[in-house]
Simulated assay, not measured.
Amino acid sequence: MARIANRFGRIEPRRVAGAYVRELLADIDRKNCWNLAEHLGLTGPQALQRLLRPRWDADAVRD
């Protein structure tokens, strides 16, 4: 996350992105926003869904 943190304008999306990546690597059977949010202890998938609607440069993060 240290390598891509500067691609996010605010701390909140950075934290959500870090949590999202950790959850994708976790041992969870189904990896959709609802299940990941539940595993993170969130009340719903909205934060993860907002992250997936990029306002950040996805190509720059990938590179």
Rank of each mutant, 00 (worst) to 15 (best):
M1G: 11
A2W: 03
A2V: 04
R3S: 15
I4V: 12
I4D: 07
I4M: 08
A5W: 07
A5G: 12
A5E: 15
A5D: 15
F8S: 14
F8D: 10
F8L: 14
G9I: 11
R10Q: 12
I11D: 15
P13I: 07
P13M: 09
P13Y: 09
P13K: 10
R14N: 14
R14L: 14
R14V: 04
R15D: 14
R15Q: 12
V16R: 10
A17M: 14
A17V: 06
A17G: 10
G18H: 10
A19I: 05
A19F: 00
A19V: 03
Y20G: 01
Y20W: 12
V21K: 05
V21W: 05
R22L: 15
E23A: 13
E23C: 11
E23S: 12
L24V: 01
L24C: 10
L25G: 14
L25F: 14
A26R: 12
A26L: 09
A26E: 07
A26H: 11
A26M: 06
A26K: 08
A26Q: 06
D27L: 06
I28S: 07
D29W: 00
D29S: 11
D29C: 03
R30T: 09
R30M: 06
R30E: 11
K31W: 08
N32V: 02
N32C: 10
N32H: 01
N32I: 05
C33I: 04
W34H: 07
W34T: 10
W34E: 07
L36I: 00
A37V: 03
A37K: 01
E38P: 00
E38W: 08
E38Q: 07
H39T: 00
H39K: 05
L40K: 02
L40N: 00
L40I: 00
L40C: 04
L40V: 00
G41R: 02
G41V: 02
G41C: 04
T43E: 09
T43I: 06
T43P: 00
T43Q: 04
G44F: 01
G44Q: 05
P45D: 02
P45S: 02
P45M: 00
P45F: 05
P45K: 01
A47D: 09
A47M: 07
A47V: 03
L48T: 06
Q49Y: 06
Q49A: 03
R50N: 15
L51E: 04
L51N: 07
L51Q: 09
L51F: 06
L52S: 06
L52C: 14
R53A: 15
R53E: 15
R53N: 14
P54L: 05
P54K: 02
P54F: 07
P54M: 04
P54I: 01
R55E: 13
R55F: 04
R55D: 12
R55W: 10
W56T: 01
W56N: 03
W56H: 08
W56C: 05
D57L: 04
D57T: 03
D57N: 15
D57G: 05
A58K: 14
D59M: 13
A60R: 13
A60C: 11
V61M: 09
V61Q: 10
R62V: 12
R62A: 12
D63N: 01
D63P: 02
D63I: 06
